[in-house]
Amino acid sequence: MRKMSMDTRRALTGIVFVLPFVIGFIAFFLYPFILSLMFSFSDVSVGASGYELTSVGLENYESALLVHESYVRTLTETVQSMLANVPAILIFSLFVAVLLNQPFRGRGVARVVFFLPVIFNCGAVLLIENYDFLTNTLTGGSAASPGSEIVTSLFYGLKLPQGVLGYIMNAVRAVPDIIKASGIQILVFLAGLQSVPESLYEASAIEGATGWETFWKVTFPIISPLIPTMIVYTVIDSFTAPNNRMMELIQNTAFRGMGYGVSSAMAWIYFVVIAAILAFVVWLVSKWVFYQE
């Protein structure tokens, strides 16, 4: 022990610190991960003395994509709503963070309120809420926000291209969902805004910049490194969102439907599609982010 160099000893200590994770990663992540890949190519039969795999080639993938009555539709819907919601959530949370960063009375309460959905608007409660009669009558349905018709008609008045209009419509309709999915992002952007040095604002005020210019030329570049992280976080969050029907479908397929094999194939298709999109978007955004080095 005495003869060991300082570096070796430090390296060993470091390994002791991360050892729990390495064990957990292999036992509860890597092993199930590989198992899942194997399941997706096999017929899985479960008995009292263990499980057996019979290789079936691509049959499970065929069942998921060609035979299952709603998988393809659910997949496209899930991916579509993710692609639509992620930018909307980021823009919205940045906007709210800017609002909450201004000095006004009740700011502390407002911050807590915007974080509340992270605490109570998720998981089992929201899962059931979507079926509630009273929620739907009192708030006009979970898919529509109060007053969304007004906004909708407002935008119809503007002569916008069909695609842009459609996107705005859907965003307006999804306002409650977007607000509820923005809790963490708002707080992170808010912390980012507070880390912008005051001297930069003073300098731009002296140069005669307007608030709008200051935001785009000073504030935005400084907080832009947060954007790739927040994109990844928002996408990850959408996996476990209660309105993600993919989750229910995969769980139901495994335990009450076509079985473990098909369910694993479904999950793998979902994962590969999401990972490809995520990698592409993060690559695209990182090229354009401003790093202050």
């Binding site: 992540f29 199930p32 991960f33 996996f239 473990y260 793998w268």
Partner: peptide, 21 residues
């Protein structure tokens, strides 16, 4: 990298093998 990777993989993927595990 593995730490970050555990985040990106949807729990749906691991549910069945974890259950069997």
């Amino acid at each position: 990298g593995c730490v970050l990777f555990t985040l990106v993989v949807p729990p749906q993927l691991l549910l069945v093998p974890l259950y069997i595990n």
